[in-house]
């Protein structure tokens, strides 16, 4: 994996001067299969819940995150990231079936975590300048997009902001130094 990533990193860095695989290029910039995304709400929900599960506070599903991910992927994502997201989504069940003999939504929590770990490792962005070139040319990986939209969708939702964070819309004043109390949550708004 490391060697593949290193090679891809070199390819990306030299992308400006060297014409690289036009097939890959087309796969990143093809018209994204948005109909497929719409058909996968159940899978999206299970994936989001793996990222932010229900604990003593609501999880991603209860906070309405799957709909937000769908909206963001369909309406507010660059084509290359859209394609990488959709390709990733399409690869989840084959991997889960290959590994555990059942689709993701039927997997146990531990099995889901293992599938997710696989996609996290596969989708690690490059560091430094190759990472910047990567984002610009081929967008974010499936896992990066999934995690970003899940976190943003969750912590800006009514339940996420008010139950998992400390939400005060109109504070009325500012105090620069206060002792942290036990179990203090982060402020929801900056």
């Amino acid at each position: 994996m490391k060697r593949r990533q290193a090679l891809l990193g070199i390819t990306l860095l030299s992308a400006g001067s060297v014409a690289f695989s036009s097939y890959k290029w087309l796969s990143w910039y093809k018209k994204p299969d948005l109909v497929y995304v719409h058909s996968q709400k159940e899978l999206l929900a299970a994936l989001a819940e793996t990222i932010i599960p229900t604990t003593d506070t609501p999880g991603a599903i209860e906070a309405g995150v799957p709909d937000f991910i769908l909206k963001m992927v369909v309406e507010n994502t660059m084509t290359a990231s859209q394609n990488r997201f959709i390709d990733g989504l399409k690869a989840v069940d084959p991997y889960a079936i290959n590994r555990f003999g059942k689709p993701y939504v039927k997997c146990t929590r531990d099995q889901q975590n293992e599938v997710m770990r696989h996609f996290e490792n596969a989708g690690k962005p490059f560091e430094g300048i190759p990472g910047k070139v990567e984002r610009k040319l081929i967008g974010n990986s499936f896992f990066t997009t999934l995690k970003q939209y899940t976190c943003v969708g969750y912590f800006t939702s009514r339940l996420g902001a008010t139950r998992s964070l400390a939400y005060v819309f109109t504070p009325g004043g500012y105090t620069g130094c206060v002792p942290l109390i036990t179990g203090q949550k982060s402020w929801a708004i900056r």
Binding site: V168, P171, G173, Y174, G176, V178, L180, Q184, W187
Partner: peptide, 10 residues
Amino acid sequence: FEDQYYTGRR
């Protein structure tokens, strides 16, 4: 300052 925070948004 791990035990310190602030209240409100300045």
